[in-house]
Design a protein around this nucleic acid. Structure first.
Lengths: 208, 208
DNA sequence: AGACTAAACGGACTACGGTCCGGTTTGTAT
DNA sequence: ATACAAACCGGACCGTAGTCCGTTTAGTCT
């Protein structure tokens, strides 16, 4: 046991950023585990930051230092799923990944995103419920850049703006309203999005 | 003075809803005036409900009984502008009002809405910042029904869903992010929306 | 005028997100 | 081992939206 501690676990050389202190790491693990438990037990919307601090046996300040705010916490809980989603649309197989024509990639992107929202529901909504900089969060910027690129490839004017429009369409709050409050099935929303994207990029409306 | 009170001011017959009590009316006026003053002085986002209650010399409970929540208050402040907007797209002259083809009415609707958001800014955003039932608020339902009708006229499949997509595009928070944080000019957003709507309804992209 | 009731009032109270800062712990240099 | 600085910790504290309930008041009926 003590031998292990003699071997540098993360030998990142001398220039690396000062690695995380052990107590900080321990608290982060505690917090993440407590957060997952609480979410599983009581649902995302019922979890408060005080509750989390208490369950993790940690001060409230520690929670906020770690995650910034409530949305940051939820984002962290989603980070694995989010990373996987990003991998898929950047490096994965077509039609979501590179190789397919822009229209199809666009359709696949919306479809994947709608499934993501359907799957992670409240969590996805809470992760984007940041008071100020929702749209400036790294994932949102990445999605935006991706759509912008696809639209530029497709020869659309003002791809930046069009990407914004399309992204607003995939806002978790809106999608969840349709799914949960209005009882619309996910398949219908996905089909609608495909038609939306198809029409936008000038595909014959009837074409599959 | 006492003679006036003998004459029924609102002779709505016996079946009308019990009219508002005089103290309630007085407090409502006080609250609205105070709210307008505070918004003018300090900006929408800096106005708190306590502040408003204090300025209007009224209890906090009265504020919430009247408006339900913060969003309701802001909605009330916007009600004149909102009513006028509704009149325009329901009864007004084309292309916003009836008489023009659906595509053009759609373009005009988005354009008008973007101008509205640009004009009322923070207020429009705050009015839609209701914790739960944003999309079920009467104005949002009306906009949705209107777009749905236009899309149905235009022969779109699933007009309900398409109307939802289009409305999400006009979300005040998103539009204001582009306008204020990204420095996009209103004209560019309006032009983008026209192109968006045009492509969606199958108009030749280049057509004015 | 006096009594009565339903509506309205007001402000103390709660819940929650987020901040602040004095005290503690960790890793390191000597 | 000891000293030290930086990073970290915890929980008291704050501001705000929204609720609750005992008290007051406007309008009505006799």
């Amino acid at each position: 046991m003590f031998l292990v501690s003699l071997i540098p676990i993360r030998p990142e050389g001398s220039s690396g950023p000062p690695s995380e202190r052990s107590d900080a790491a321990r608290n982060r693990e505690r917090l993440l585990q407590a957060a997952r438990e609480l979410v599983a037990e009581r649902g995302v919307d019922a979890v408060t930051m005080d509750m989390l601090a208490c369950r993790a046996e940690v001060g409230k300040g520690t929670v906020f230092r770690r995650f910034g705010n409530r949305a940051g916490l939820m984002m962290t809980l989603l980070s694995d799923a989010e990373a996987e989603f990003q991998q898929r649309f950047i490096f994965g197989p077509p039609p979501l990944g590179p190789g397919a024509p822009p229209v199809e990639r666009l359709m696949a992107f919306g479809e994947a995103r709608i499934r993501y929202i359907d799957k992670y529901g409240e969590l996805a909504r809470a992760a984007e419920h940041s008071p100020h900089n929702r749209h400036a969060a790294p994932p949102a910027l990445l999605w935006h850049r991706h759509l912008e690129m696809l639209l530029r490839e497709a020869g659309v004017d003002d791809p930046w703006l069009m990407a914004s429009f399309l992204l607003s369409t995939l806002d978790p709050e809106r999608v969840l309203y349709a799914l949960r409050s209005q009882g619309v099935e996910a398949a219908r929303i996905e089909a609608g999005w495909r038609e939306f994207a198809g029409r936008l990029l000038g595909c014959p409306p009837g074409a599959k």
